[in-house]
């Protein structure tokens, strides 16, 4: 028996909106510690890891570990029927082939339940080693989204370079080139507008903008995004999900061969 009640149901709506274009079908893994997901895009170039810790739910009951295979587009369709301030409860029986989403309005005057069929999904779980990153950039998520969107009108790839001077996003295309440099800015008064760069060593990596733009669908979840870079390793683009967890996107860099 699984029963997860999330007062901030809007968070789950935003999580699904940020996943559904990258991944079609995925297994949500439920355990005593939380509700999580790891899935790759169809080309296995990008991976998303989601964790919503059990403490973040108002009520969290998970009698035994359960894997719920869901079509993320269909799940997003159902969650779109919840209002942003609705309380969302996810329910499933151990042997059931369906999951129920219950939406309650904050003053309890409207209660809806939507039942969705589950799927059997063969998913491959990859081991992601703990890495020491050469550079970690924390910046406003809206600024990062704007940069990815702007650069993708000019080129297909972005070179992200971190030096003492700041973080530089560069692209080139048929019509020309573009470089955007963001300098460190601690923004003491408004921490959500800060750009903080922790650099062990300068690093420069090339990524497909198509995926970066897809990751920025998570922008409504968090004011800040963290971009962790190391030479010859996938970049990690992380958005915090309130106080309860995170959504992390991994993207393999392009390499010269």
């Amino acid at each position: 028996m699984l029963e997860l009640r999330l007062v901030q149901g809007g968070l789950l709506k935003k999580v699904l909106e940020s996943l559904k274009d990258l991944v079609n079908d995925a297994n949500f893994d439920c355990s005593a510690s939380g509700f999580s997901l790891q899935a790759m895009d169809s080309s296995h170039v990008a991976l998303v890891a989601l964790l919503l810790r059990s403490e973040g739910f108002e009520h969290y009951r998970c009698d035994r570990n359960l894997s719920l295979g869901m079509n993320l587009n269909n799940m997003a369709k159902m969650l779109k029927c919840a209002a942003n301030d609705d309380i969302v409860t996810i329910k499933a029986d151990d042997a059931s082939d369906s999951v129920t989403f219950m939406f309650e309005s904050p003053n309890q005057d409207k209660i809806a339940d939507f039942e969705m069929k589950l799927m059997d999904i063969d998913s491959e779980h990859l081991g992601i080693p703990e890495a020491e990153f050469q550079a970690i950039v924390r910046m406003p998520s809206a600024e990062f989204a704007r940069i990815c969107k702007d650069l993708s009108t000019i080129g297909d790839t972005v070179v992200i370079s971190v030096t003492k001077e700041g973080v530089k996003f560069s692209t080139r295309g048929d019509i020309g080139t573009a470089n955007i440099v963001c300098r460190q800015n601690p923004s003491i008064d408004k921490p959500e507008e800060a750009t903080i760069i922790e650099m062990e060593e300068p690093v420069s990596l090339t990524f497909a903008l198509r995926y970066m733009n897809s990751f920025t669908k998570a922008t409504p979840l968090a004011n800040q995004v963290t971009i962790s870079l190391s030479a010859d390793l996938p970049v990690v683009v992380e958005y915090r999900v309130a106080e309860m967890g995170y959504i992390r996107f991994y993207l393999a860099p392009k390499i010269e061969e």
Binding site: S43, H44, V45, H125, L126, I128, P234, Y250, A252, E257
Partner: peptide, 14 residues
Amino acid sequence: PPFQPNLHRFFHSP
């Protein structure tokens, strides 16, 4: 042009 490897080059199934 640079080559796009997939994630299996970096991460492995446990």
